[in-house]
Amino acid sequence: MATPTIRRGFVDVPGGQVHYRTAGEQTGIPLILMHPSPGSGLMLKPLLQAMGAKRWTIALDTRGNGDSSPLSGTPEIADFANATWQAIDALGIEECCLLGTHTGASIATEASIQQPARVRRLIIDNMGLWDSTQRQNHIDHNSPTIKPDMMGSQFNWAWHYCRDQYLFAPWYQRKEANRRHIDMPEPEVLHEFVVEVLKALETYNMSYSAAARFAKRDRLPLVSVNTMVSSSERDPLKRYLDELHSLVPGSVKAIVGDLETVDGALAAAEIYEAFISR
């Protein structure tokens, strides 16, 4: 099957605009993709194309990430979930499937709790079920507030910040015990990642910090829609997959490919589509 064309657009929502990428024929029940922090929907381009070959698929830029307008104040995951529904409404979509990964998984989870009647299927791809110490470390260190300066130090910071996401987990604990031992992405992919972070330099941290504060273990048992939990073998959050599975009532569990690589996304799309369409 030919690789579908990705098209981009904006929708007006309260407080600004949401940017999105879409692929596939605009018929049937669409799949909404919610990306990991700190990038944008561009990070899920391989999955967008792989799923777009099977169904109408839309990758949103989370509010305050990529090209989407930020939310005001100090938003929590419930606010990002509500903002997701505002974007879905603006797109004229009544019923959909939701797929979120990492930070996007928290947003998709809360969105499914807010409006379960509108969610045909939910896919939660990796979620960090941290203890209180890990949670506080993420709040304190994972997404620092960065502002441009006259020396342009933000450019050097962003490159190393994005690069280190592939080297360590978490990125700020640069120790051998935290090495990921995976291949680095192609320079072009890393460049795109850095550019997306720079676009939202002063607001990228909002969703990241909200995900760290999100009471995941309390909220996951409230999910009432048909749910799959997934992870690739190489994802550092795979260690939480079994617990994640146990917390979501009636969920099914799957090992999938890496969603940010072409081959991994194609493999994952086969598993996801079988779950969505069954």
Rank of each mutant, 00 (worst) to 15 (best):
C96V: 15
H160S: 12
I77A: 02
K147F: 14
N126L: 04
K147C: 10
D125R: 00
D140S: 08
R118T: 06
I123K: 00
Q134S: 12
F80G: 03
A78R: 11
L129V: 06
P144S: 08
Q86Y: 02
V119W: 01
S132N: 12
T101M: 12
Q136N: 10
S112M: 06
A83F: 06
V119L: 04
S153V: 08
Q115Y: 12
I146W: 05
G100Y: 00
I113R: 02
A78D: 13
S143K: 07
R120L: 06
C96G: 02
D149H: 10
N156H: 14
Y166A: 03
C162A: 15
T101H: 13
E95G: 04
A111P: 04
L91T: 08
A81S: 12
P144L: 10
V119K: 00
W157L: 08
V119M: 03
Y166I: 02
D149A: 10
Q165K: 06
Q154G: 04
N82E: 15
Q114N: 07
D125C: 11
P148R: 11
T145P: 00
C96W: 00
W85T: 02
R121S: 12
L122E: 03
D164F: 03
M151I: 08
C97A: 13
I77N: 00
A108D: 03
A117D: 15
M150V: 14
M151P: 01
R121F: 05
C97I: 09
A111L: 07
M150C: 11
P144W: 11
G104P: 05
T109A: 15
I93F: 06
R118W: 07
W85I: 02
N126S: 14
G92S: 10
Y161F: 15
H141K: 13
T103G: 11
W159T: 07
S153M: 12
M151F: 15
A83Y: 04
R121V: 04
F155K: 15
A105K: 01
V119C: 09
I113D: 04
W85P: 00
W130F: 15
R163G: 05
W159R: 14
E94R: 13
Q165P: 00
N142E: 13
T109I: 08
I139D: 04
Q134D: 10
A105L: 05
N137M: 14
W159D: 06
T145C: 10
G152S: 08
N142I: 06
P116V: 09
I146S: 05
I88K: 01
L122A: 02
W157E: 01
R135L: 09
G152V: 09
D140F: 07
H138V: 05
A90H: 06
C97W: 03
A87Q: 02
F80Y: 13
H138N: 14
N82H: 13
